[in-house]
Amino acid sequence: MRTATAVPIITAHEVGIHFPVAGGRTLRAVDGVSLEVHRGETFGVIGESGSGKTTLGRALVCLERPAAGRVLHDGDDPYRLSAAALRRHRRDFQVVFQDPNAALDPRMTILRSVREPLDVAGELPRAERTRLALEMIERVGLNPEFADRYPHELSGGQKQRVCIARVLTLRPALIVCDEAVAALDVSIQADILNLLADLQREFGLTYVFITHNLGVVAHISDRIAVMYLGKIVELAATELIEARPLHPYTRALLSAEPVALPSHMRSHQRIVLHGELPSPVSPPSGCRFRTRCPMAVTRCMQDVPAWREVEPEHFCACHFAEDVGDAIVPQRPGGTP
């Protein structure tokens, strides 16, 4: 596990990802995000659609080059590597996407899909590559008979297992799971979450787990970053986020998540936010959440709230984080033991 002196596997420093949009304007999908991902942990990123979580995930594994700031892998800048060395380096940083249908080539057998990363790497003899791919197909809980089948013959959960197997063939150090269980039924989702946890123990993997599902992210993550409109608004250990959210947006998210408990056990007051995510092309001045924040005052319109360590290891960007923390917060049933 982590020690204070260990170099983080990923360090993001003031990372900005900008896309040009019509009218010569710039969409800042990710805007000044700083974080560290430690080796062996599961780092959860939660946010609504349009919050920039997918773009951030892509930036962390060098699929998107930051327009501002830096991303470091093990303390080094991967963009200083030669093109060939960067390609090699990328093997250590893999992504599993939401939709396995789109991620798998319908004309390739499962075996070929799983073996493809090894084929591209081209370092091992063919028989060895096939053996490793078959081994991984079995490791993710698929019958080796599936090797000669095509994606359309598999269910959604089985296809997601194939996607996991194929990123594992290169023995990565870190996997970004971008809504990797969002498209699955709840029982299948549980299966895949269990598999990811087993693989993490077995291969010493680090996960960046991107999702909009609070139940999922809280279940598997060690730490959680909450994103809103391109910025991280709160970051802390899962227990801290659940027990004592310091940002009004985190509080609203926690309270909006429907919980399958009988009525007498659902004590929390739901905070229903008004409006929807503003356009990231022209975000609100000051605090970006102020247009939907039940606590917003004039100051929130003028000053951008500083990103600060409000409590030990608990970071938040809100002028009134202390007040939010002291308010009564929703309790989730499974959370902290």
Partner: peptide, 23 residues
């Protein structure tokens, strides 16, 4: 029962989820 037990929100954090096998 199986549907309820597979919900991650209701489980102990990091515990193995009692998934329903098969489909």
């Amino acid at each position: 029962s199986g549907l309820l037990r597979s919900l991650p929100a209701l489980a102990q954090r990091k515990a193995t989820l009692p998934a329903i096998p098969g489909r």
